[in-house]
Nucleic acid binder design. Structure first.
Length: 864
RNA sequence: GCGGACGUGGCGGAACUGGUAGACGCAGCGGACUUAAAAUCCGCUUCUCGUUGAGAGUGGGGGUUCGAGUCCCUCCGUCCGCACCA
């Protein structure tokens, strides 16, 4: 092969990356006259190594960014580092390296690994959340939240990891155990800083409806997480006591079916009663031991302890029910107390069976005999939770469930015994972490003034560098001087808050900071933020569907209400990409082998490269260190170059699904990269100079067909990219280049058409394989570079053909084809269809009952 | 249990609002080029029977329709999220 025909990947990719950098092609600038487009991938944690998930994530984002730039948008596509967090402290403990050093070195290493991908990122906007220039603004926000009542300190039950010596977020507790330590998590009551996310519960919920460019799946998950339920709070006076029990219910219509009340083992009343009742205290202790792991809940039976107290029915003072402490009542939801209506709630039913409590049906399905229904239900094992009409319910009898709810609430309100209310599952966000490597919470605890915010002119509160990790717990707590300060208000000796923020706080506003990352006086330059926000396309893993995305939505609202910015929704469009998976390999002794250690054999098996020992091929799973089925992106980029990797990533399967990484697939992409280059360097037809017009009128039918195919490809690819269908976009371009093989070189205008097709393919492929296509474009004699060029335009006149092929069916079965002028009259199509030989064979001797003609598509002849 | 997504060749996957199922790629088979190999190019590749052709076919069953992968009912199965949420 001639030298000119071989594509020099390394030289090409390095060259174009340098050209783009020199020309500052990807520097984001604001131009109010032009449409903007903000593309953002979820920023990475600087672990020090990029992985395949990064490669996939940033390839997709880059594709979108390059496409939008070509479409004439002012594009913002920045990169930063989610740089606080536990791994840095673990590295400090294990290897004695300071978290700051470890993090900064990792950032440098990962930046070096990202650069060869050829991403169209504005690197001048790079931020790292661990730097004081970044987190100082977060501290100011916190002070403003404090003033606005959006941040507060309270004693809450937390998940405490006894090994890590810190609080864990709910998502860090897996099956009741710490996600890193594996130690059973303890429930502890601690004074914690919390953000009042519940203030926006209704707004966060309602606004989900307008997030029409978010996946339905994520919208559903957020909706469920917020967990709105309408119902009533009902007060049950306690007999022989001065106080009352407040319960929450979604079924106030079943109040006349109540047979007990139950309170959580963590309910204050339970604690009070337990003081004089050792048996109850023992019961409560046992409930706590049972824990909250999934299988514990699954298998635990309903258990209760009768307190001996009686609660007075709110609608009938002569009616009392027993009050139990029950293991299935959660303190965290509602009021921590319920009334039990066994007939219409399965849990209450099970409980009533066990403790022999009455089961009285108060709702019956319409059109059933209430007496018989009630008898069946009482005798059976299942509660009735469906819709119906009230029975055995005095003034409610005959009302439907919805009407009965309204009527009861009205009665309760008039009696002062309760009121209609809305309950949310969502809880406030506890943000305190007993950790060093996080943003310091800027408050001071003063023995005489209490909690005193750090004055704004003293921000930022920076982390001390001289810390030790030789003992468990928070190094800030042990630091000899850092925490000891004078109270800003009264001047007496006081102590800094030593907790730091949950790292989800930094990621809740970084997207806004990217709009003007270097403004040091304010967190957000209003003009820049108003121009760029919201993010038009956010891309990341679905694992953040609830927490990060919900926290960010909360933060935008809180920042808006504190006067920082105007919008409420951070991400107008969201795309959740799937995981990267790979086959797993196990040696005979069960140990896992890396893909690089294994070779596939022709019979479909595999063997170890080192000694030829047989290897068991397991199913494809998410790449993980434990199964050793990871592939190192750095090596891929080094061997095949960025373009082949990028092409494989976007062409293999739909981007929202899991992608199976395979060497064969990558090599297929690599072959295509080289094929495209050959198309330019050694075209099937000598190409005329750039700008040679296509002599459309002179083209014969096949050549015109190819020319039109190129226009259709432009239209199709454009549509596919708009809809995130990268795989079909690539397939269309491959079809075009395949079709080029059928071009007759000596046909009139063939060379000009060939040039048009090659140019089109190159331009359409640019967002996927930017380096290769720049080289191609240059070789084709392009006067610009593609990174600064416009997206091709399809000519609508060439999107339709003059001649169309119609399928001909007889009784719905395909029997032939006919070629006809586009939009020809139905009668003509019918006649042509009936004339097809094979059609005649199937209609001969039969009566034609009906002929269906769908113009330009199909003719169906119905015979009988 | 609740909510969501989904089920198409050996594999990943195409198929616009019902209109020629299997685009494109991977793997496989055959051929060309080559002393040979690699690379490249061309052809075949859902299954069954076969010469043209025919029959079957989108998880199973049923329905609507001239026509169903697509719509409806029902059953089976897979994946994801939440879960004693009152």
């Amino acid at each position: 092969m001639a030298v000119a025909e071989r594509y020099a990947v390394k030289e090409s990719e390095a060259h174009w990356q340098q050209v783009w950098a020199e020309r500052a092609c990807f520097r984001a600038t604001e131009d109010p006259e032009r449409p903007k487009y903000y593309v953002l991938e979820m920023f990475p944690y600087p672990s020090g190594r990029i992985h395949m998930g990064h490669l996939r994530n940033y390839t997709m984002g880059d594709l979108v960014a390059r496409y939008r730039r070509a479409r004439g948008h002012m594009v913002l596509h920045p990169m930063g580092w989610d740089a606080f967090g536990l791994p840095a402290e673990n590295a400090a403990i294990q290897r004695g390296v300071h978290p700051a050093t470890w993090t900064r070195e990792n950032i440098a290493a990962m930046r070096d690994q990202f650069k060869p991908m050829g991403l169209s990122i504005d690197w001048t906007r790079e931020i790292a959340t661990c730097e004081p220039e970044y987190y100082r603004h977060e501290q100011k926000m916190f002070l403003d939240f404090l003033k606005a009542g959006l941040a507060y300190r309270t004693e809450t039950w937390v998940n405490w990891d006894p090994v890590e010596h810190t609080v864990l977020a709910n998502e860090q507790v897996i099956d009741g155990k710490g996600w890193r330590s594996g130690a059973p998590v303890e429930r502890r009551k601690l004074a914690q800083w919390s953000f009042r996310i519940t203030r926006y519960a209704e707004d966060l919920l309602q606004a989900i409806q307008d997030l029409d460019r978010w996946p339905d799946k994520v919208r559903a998950m957020q909706t469920n997480w917020i967990g709105r339920s309408e119902g009533a709070r009902v007060r049950w006076d306690l007999a022989d006591r001065d106080d009352a029990l407040e319960v929450f219910t979604t079924r106030p219509d079943t109040l006349y079916g109540a047979s007990f009340c139950a309170i959580s083992p963590n309910h204050p009343l339970a604690a009070e009663l337990a003081r004089d009742n050792p048996d109850l205290a023992a019961f409560i202790a046992e409930c706590a031991r049972l824990g909250t792991s999934e299988e514990a809940i699954e298998t635990a039976e309903k258990r209760g302890f009768d307190t001996g107290l009686r609660a007075v029915h709110p609608l009938d003072p002569s009616w009392t029910v027993p009050v139990h402490v029950a293991n299935f009542v959660l303190m965290e939801y509602g009021t921590g107390a319920i009334f039990g209506c066994p007939a219409h709630d399965q849990r209450d039913f099970d409980f009533a069976r066990k403790y022999d409590l009455p089961i009285l049906a108060v709702v019956a399905p319409r059109d059933t005999d209430p007496v018989a229904f009630a008898a069946d239900l009482t005798a059976g094992t299942e509660a009735f939770v469906g819709d119906g009409v009230a029975i055995n319910s005095r003034f409610l009898d005959g009302l439907g469930v919805a009407d009965a709810k309204r009527a009861v609430i009205e009665r309760l309100e008039s009696l002062g015994k309760g009121e209609g209310t809305v309950q949310y599952r969502l809880r406030d966000w506890g943000v305190s972490r007993q950790r060093y490597w996080g943003c310091p919470i800027p408050v001071i605890h003063c023995p005489s003034c209490g909690i005193v915010p750090v004055p704004e002119d003293q921000l930022p509160v920076t982390l001390p560098e001289d810390v030790t990790f030789d003992a468990p717990g928070n190094p800030l707590d042990r630091h000899p001087t850092w925490a000891h300060v004078d109270c800003p208000t009264c001047g007496t000796a006081a102590r800094r808050e030593t907790d730091t923020f949950d790292t989800f706080v930094e990621s809740s506003w970084y997207f806004a900071r990217f709009c003007a990352p270097h403004s040091d006086t304010v967190a957000f330059d209003r003009a820049a933020v108003d121009y760029w926000l919201p993010v038009d396309q956010y891309i990341g893993g679905v694992e953040h569907a609830v927490l990060h995305l919900l926290y960010s939505r909360f933060f935008m609202r809180a920042l808006r209400d504190c006067g920082y910015l105007a919008g409420a929704e951070p991400f107008a469009g969201l795309f959740t990409q799937g995981m990267v998976t790979h086959e797993t390999y196990q040696a005979a002794d069960g140990s896992w082998l890396e893909p690089a250690e294994v070779e596939r054999t022709d019979d479909g098996g595999a063997r170890r490269l080192s000694d030829g020992a047989p290897v068991t091929v397991g199913r494809s799973e998410k790449m993980s260190k434990s199964r050793r089925n990871t592939v190192d992106p750095e090596r891929i980029l080094d061997t095949y170059g960025a373009d082949a990797a990028r092409l494989f990533i976007v062409s293999d399967n739909p981007p929202d699904g899991d992608m199976e990484w395979s060497d064969a697939g990558l090599e297929g992409a690599w072959r295509y990269v080289n094929r495209i280059w050959r198309l330019v360097a050694a075209p099937p037809v000598p190409l005329p100079p750039a700008g040679t017009p296509v002599p459309v009128a002179d083209l014969d039918a096949p050549t015109l067909g190819l020319y039109r195919r190129a226009h259709k490809t432009i239209a199709g690819v454009t549509e596919d990219l708009e809809r995130f269908r990268f795989n079909t976009a690539v397939a269309r371009i491959r079809e075009l280049t395949n079709a080029l093989g059928d071009l007759k070189a000596d046909a009139p205008g063939a060379a000009a058409v060939a040039r048009f097709c090659v140019e089109t393919a190159v331009r359409l492929l640019n967002p996927m394989v930017p380096h290769l296509t720049e080289s191609c474009w240059q070789a084709l004699g392009g006067s610009t570079i593609l990174a600064e060029s416009d997206w091709p335009q399809a000519d609508p006149a060439h999107l339709v053909d003059d001649t169309v092929t119609l399928a001909v069916q007889v009784n719905g079965k395909l029997r032939g084809n006919v070629s006809l002028p586009r939009d020809c009259p139905k009668a003509e199509a019918e006649a042509a269809a009936l004339a097809v030989d094979n059609v005649r064979a199937h209609t001969e001797g039969k009566t034609i009952r009906k002929v269906v003609v769908v113009p330009n598509r199909i003719v169906n002849i119905v015979v009988g």
